[in-house]
């Protein structure tokens, strides 16, 4: 998704209305309840909240020129990896085995077998179409953020094909975009 992302792909940056700001904040709080007490620091009411629209219906939530969250169309907001690294507990986690790391870091979607094998792990409560953090075997930080295509139960039982869509991974375009101005 952000494989070839560059700051030039931002088609427009808008400082959003207070009402939209509230809505974004609310939906982030709903999605990540653990993050709620931090939202005040992260998205201060005073600082202007900017929504950058990019190609492919991607929106970036930008505060102080730093992209913090992104979403697609009207989908759920997902934190950027840099943010997730700081607060690793906020998202449901899946873990892939070591063999999959290479592919995930090249932008591949996460296939079921990589999650169900010995090195992988699943959070069983996760349903389909939910954002998850992708961790890796033997590593402590997330390497990607994905969007589940099927529920964790299905991943286990079907064990074939794409389990999680890779939205944002280490060293992709968004990762390299430290600042937007």
């Amino acid at each position: 998704m952000f494989k070839k992302f560059t700051p030039e792909e931002v088609t427009g940056q808008n400082q959003v209305k207070a009402s939209v700001q509230r809505k974004i904040r609310q939906s982030i709080a709903d999605e990540y309840p653990d993050l709620e007490p931090l939202l005040e620091d992260m998205l201060p009411k005073k600082a202007p909240l900017i929504v950058a629209k990019c190609q492919n219906h991607i929106n970036l939530v930008v505060v102080n020129n730093v992209p913090l969250f992104f979403n697609v169309r009207d989908g759920p907001y997902m934190p950027t990896l840099r943010l997730l690294h700081q607060y690793p507990g906020i998202m449901k986690m899946f873990r892939v085995d070591r063999g999959a790391i290479k592919f995930v870091l090249a932008g591949a979607n996460i296939m079921c077998p990589g999650l169900t094998s010995a090195g992988g792990a699943l959070d069983e409560e996760v349903s389909a179409d939910a954002p998850v953090a992708i961790m890796a075997e033997g590593k402590q930080h997330a390497l990607a953020i994905g969007y589940t295509k099927m529920s964790a139960q299905d991943i286990k039982s079907i064990n074939k094909g794409i389990g999680v869509d890779n939205m944002h991974y280490l060293n992709d375009g968004l990762w390299k975009t430290l600042h937007l101005d």
Partner: peptide, 10 residues
């Protein structure tokens, strides 16, 4: 720019 533990895949 990756976390140190991912350097080997960088």
């Amino acid at each position: 720019s990756l976390p140190a533990e991912y350097c080997e895949f960088g």
